[in-house]
């Protein structure tokens, strides 16, 4: 049977939450950040429904606040060090880089443990050594293979993130093969070449035949466009592949996001946000979320009532989560 996934939030609802969060963050000099984050995530989780059952975000703002304090102290130390001595700044950023896999793992543990559906929590329980291998070890080999290893590294990272996740006591399985990742990359390379040729032709055409005053803006737009298309294609294709290769017990996932749809969502959303001085940001984020859920479906033979809770796992701190957030590390957050 199919279990319908849907996002039932609206731009208007999120606008209220977002603007109140913003105001409180400003007047409390960012101290409210932890509470704001919890409200935002509780909103988004609570509006994602699977078979009319919403998800829940359960993290306590206090835990996040403690993590935020540690992360803020780290960022202040880093900034000061960088200001007074370039060398020290480099040393510290190397240390932070060495911590990156730890941060990703900690952050995912925190967010998964605090995410639930039907009163059963998700989980993430990897080996740290494996985390270092896929997020630091393999990537360091990439330059020596002229980049040919990139798809494989991506495959290993996604496999690591999915296979160590669980819902209750049931682990997720990852069925993708490296071949599928390489296929996305070859398509990507092909698209890059094709786009480059087309855009060089259009570029030259515009430069020659369109008056300079208008032409310069068209050219600026055109020079960002291929990059934008390629990035959206890559993200969409990888997201589809990862969902379609993920299984949980008897559940199979299917994601059918379309690259052109995503391009349009991001492009029109970005334009709207810029021209509204940021005010349409809630509307744009809700729109993307709704599309993602719309294109995701879950199938199973025997329903979703038989998952067993994992009552053994201990609670975890939010330091990793907050360091990842403040230092702008791209930490994966999904359900």
């Amino acid at each position: 049977m199919e279990h319908k996934v849907s996002f039932r939030g609206t731009g208007k609802e999120y606008f209220g939450i977002w603007i109140v969060n913003t105001l409180l963050k400003i007047v409390t000099f960012s101290v409210y950040t932890a509470w704001a984050k919890v409200r935002k995530r509780r909103y988004f989780a609570g509006k994602i429904f699977m078979d009319d059952e919403p998800f829940e975000y359960l993290a306590s703002p206090r835990a996040l606040f403690r993590g935020w304090l540690v992360a803020a102290a780290a960022i202040v130390a880093y900034t000061c060090a960088d200001y007074f001595s370039k060398m020290l700044g480099i040393v510290i950023s190397l240390i932070i880089m060495a911590f990156f896999p730890w941060v990703v793992v900690k952050s995912r543990i925190f967010n998964f443990r605090n995410q639930s559906c039907r009163n059963i929590r998700f989980g993430f329980a990897p080996k740290y050594a494996e985390g270092y291998r896929v997020m630091l070890g393999w990537p360091l080999l990439v330059p020596f293979t002229l980049g040919l290893l990139i798809p494989y590294v991506f495959y290993r990272q996604k496999k690591f993130l999915v296979e160590n996740s669980s819902y209750g006591t049931t682990p997720f399985r990852f069925t993708a093969t490296p071949r599928e990742f390489y296929r996305i990359y070859t398509t990507l390379v092909f698209k890059v070449v094709l786009f480059s040729l087309v855009f060089i032709a259009v570029f030259v055409g515009v430069a020659m035949f369109v008056p300079k005053q208008v032409g310069i803006y068209i050219l600026m737009f055109l020079s960002v466009l291929p990059f934008f298309l390629v990035v959206v294609y890559f993200k969409t294709a990888i997201a589809n592949l990862v969902w379609n290769s993920t299984e949980l017990g008897g559940l199979k996932f299917q994601s059918s996001m379309d690259v052109m749809d995503m391009c349009w969502l991001y492009f029109s959303g970005g334009v709207a946000v810029i021209f509204s001085m940021g005010l349409l940001f809630p509307w744009a984020s809700v729109r993307v979320m709704r599309y993602r859920c719309e294109r995701l479906s879950v199938h199973s033979q025997e329903g979703i009532g038989q998952f067993i809770a994992d009552t053994a796992s201990a609670s975890v701190g939010a330091v990793g989560e907050e360091i990842g957030d403040l230092f702008g590390m791209d930490v994966d957050f999904g359900f």
Binding site: V273, S276, G278, F281
Partner: peptide, 11 residues
């Protein structure tokens, strides 16, 4: 007006 890393920093 928005997160540091999002499009709104352009705005």
């Amino acid at each position: 007006i928005g997160d540091f890393t999002s499009v709104s920093s352009m705005a």
